[in-house]
Structure formats: C-alpha cells, structure tokens
Computed example of a mutant assay.
Amino acid sequence: MILHTNDVFKVTRPEDIFETRGRFAYFRVELLSQKGNIDVSLKLTGRLDWTFTRSITLTRKTNDKGVAVFPVGRICESLIQGTKSNLITYVITASEYDHAGPALYAVPGFADREILPEWGDGENISQFYPAAPCIVVYPNAGFEQSLFFPKQTGELFVLTPSSTTTEKYIGNSAFSPIIPFDPAKIPSEDLGKPLAVGATPTDYNAEIRTYYDYCTKGIFLKWTDAAGIPYLYRWTQESKTDEMSVESTYHQLDDTLTPRDVQNKTLAKRYTLHSRIVERDVFNLCRTILGCQDLFMYDPDVGNWVRFMVEDSESEDTGAPMQDLVVEIVRYEYL
C-alpha cells in the first residue's frame, strides 16, 4: 500500500498495479483533524478509450477517529469491464479539499500479496509476483503471446538481445503491465536467447528467464490465472474420451403428429494432459492453470480457440527439481 499525506488528510491506497479481489484493494482516508461524521467522497473513473470514460462516486461518513474506508475491488472490475486499458483514476474530496491521484492499473483477479512494481533481474520470483518467473516461447506455433511485467512507466517493450542496436521490438504496450508480443518476429540470431522488457526499444534492462519450444504438435492451451495473468503452454495428450449423458426425456409430436421421445443430452469431451517432466519454474507456470478464470484449447480443425474448463485436477509438489503436472480438462456440448 502507498501512503500520501496532505494538509487535510492521509490516504492509504493500493499500489500502482493491484488485484481487484486482493485484500489490498481499498482506500483508507484519515482526516488529520480526526473529526467524526464528516463526508468523504471517492470518485473512481475507468477509461474505456481516449474519449469516453465510466465513473462512480462513493460517499461515506468518517468514524469517531476521522477515518473512512472504501473497498473498491468489485467496483473497479465493473469500471474496466470490456476495456483494454484497465486504468483507474481517482479523486478524493474531504473538507472542501480535492486530491487527484495517479492512474492505477487494476488486474481482475486475486493474489494474497501485493504487486510491488520494479524492474528486477528475472531471477527473483517476488519481483514478478503474481506471475510465473519465466515464460515458454513458441516461435513456430503462430500464436500471439503475452508477458506480464509489474512496472507502470508508460510504454513497455518486449525485446530481444539485438534490439539494443536495431531498435526493433516484438511487442509493446502503451500503459498495461500485460504486454502482447509476436514470437514469430524474433530474429533468427536471437532464437534461444532470453527476452527482456524495456522502457524503450533499446533498453534491454530486465531480462526474463525464457524457454523455447519449437514443436507445433500437441495440445495448446491458453488461460488466465486467478490473478488475471495470461499464459500459453503446449501439453501432451494422454487420452481423450467422449461421454454422453441424458438429462431428461419428454414426448413430442413429429410432422405426422406421431408421438416420439426426445432427449436432452450432454456430450462431455474430456482430455487428460501432461506438462511432461519439466523444470521447477516451468512446472510452477503450468500449475497456474489450477483455479484459472478462463481456459481455451486451440482446435486446428477450425483454426480457433475453444473454451474448456479444468476438472478434477490436483497438483502435488514433491520438491523434485523436475516434475510432471497432469490435468483433466472438459468441454460440455448440449445436444
């Protein structure tokens, strides 16, 4: 949390990047005069684009100690719903004094620790929390990928080692810590080398632990974890089953007015998948699929992503340096 003090009140607010369902998604305003029953208002604004915004104003009375607390997580989620920026601005008004703070970035999701924005060196997991400390890149798969980096300095760039001289980057974001990039744009001389994040196309100053996977066979899944961080990974299929169940049966007349039985059926397409035996940091990346918010599998037959859900999967961390994660995913089709 960040503390700001002016002549009228102290305000404790979330970090510049915060999870909407985390326990740090609140504003605490304390009047320096410690007077009770004073109106304090908090205006929150979510930017839909550069010309249109959505806002709400909350008003509360201070308690006997001059304190008013505003939980804002769910409200911020509603303000940024359907947007790409996720930016939240705020204005606090108390005792005829207005305080306009900096723009904050709201990540829909939950994490039990704060995101502390800093560049880091790609080695310390806490500096990238709640994201995994590594990324698996698929140059030949044809998919756009995303990289989470907890820094909000304006524009951010995903870079390769040659970017420092060529000024060419493979992805950028104007204001979001979630940076989309195209792995197919990685120069051949940089394949196998770590990616980095920079504030300019030549600032190769935050190297990310990077693994390369050139295979295009298998099951590609992309998901958003419980903290709102996007991931993409290629899994190995162990089995696939189709299960048909009948929910109900009722009578219906056909075109000749002859009675017939009609059934409501559900088809469950179920896959058992393996991460394969992988390094610990990749294993931890794969574990973010447990409890994920959204899950999609790429269907090469239709050339599109199809929604699935994780079902009856568990992960046991044995402490071994290399482990295999097994998950079961399912898609229900109502016939």
Rank of each mutant, 00 (worst) to 15 (best):
F9K: 05
F9L: 06
K10H: 15
T12M: 13
D16P: 03
E19H: 10
G22M: 00
R23I: 11
A25K: 10
A25D: 13
S33W: 03
K35I: 10
G36H: 07
N37A: 04
N37R: 06
W50L: 06
W50V: 04
T53G: 12
L58A: 01
T62S: 03
T62E: 05
N63Y: 02
K65E: 05
G66N: 04
V67S: 00
V67A: 00
G73S: 13
R74P: 15
I75Y: 02
I75S: 03
E77K: 00
S78P: 01
L79T: 00
V91H: 15
A94M: 11
E96H: 14
H99G: 06
G101M: 14
G109N: 07
W119P: 08
I125F: 09
I125D: 12
Q127R: 08
P130G: 01
P130S: 01
A132Y: 04
V137H: 07
Y138V: 08
G142T: 01
F143L: 10
Q145G: 06
L156A: 05
L156E: 03
F157H: 08
T160V: 14
P161I: 09
T165K: 03
I178V: 06
I179P: 01
I186P: 09
S188T: 08
S188F: 06
D190W: 01
A196T: 15
T200E: 01
D203V: 06
A206P: 00
E207Y: 12
Y212E: 00
Y214W: 02
Y214L: 02
F220D: 02
D225C: 05
D225R: 01
D225V: 05
D225L: 03
G228T: 11
G228V: 11
G228R: 10
P230Q: 03
L232V: 13
Y233N: 10
R234V: 09
T236V: 14
E238T: 13
E243S: 12
E247R: 14
S248R: 14
Q252K: 10
D254H: 07
R260F: 12
V262S: 07
K265T: 13
T266L: 14
K269L: 09
R276I: 15
G291P: 03
D294T: 11
N304F: 11
V306D: 04
F308R: 03
V310Y: 02
S313P: 09
E314Q: 15
T318M: 02
P321N: 10
P321G: 06
L325F: 04
E328A: 11
E328W: 10
I329H: 09
R331A: 09
L335C: 15
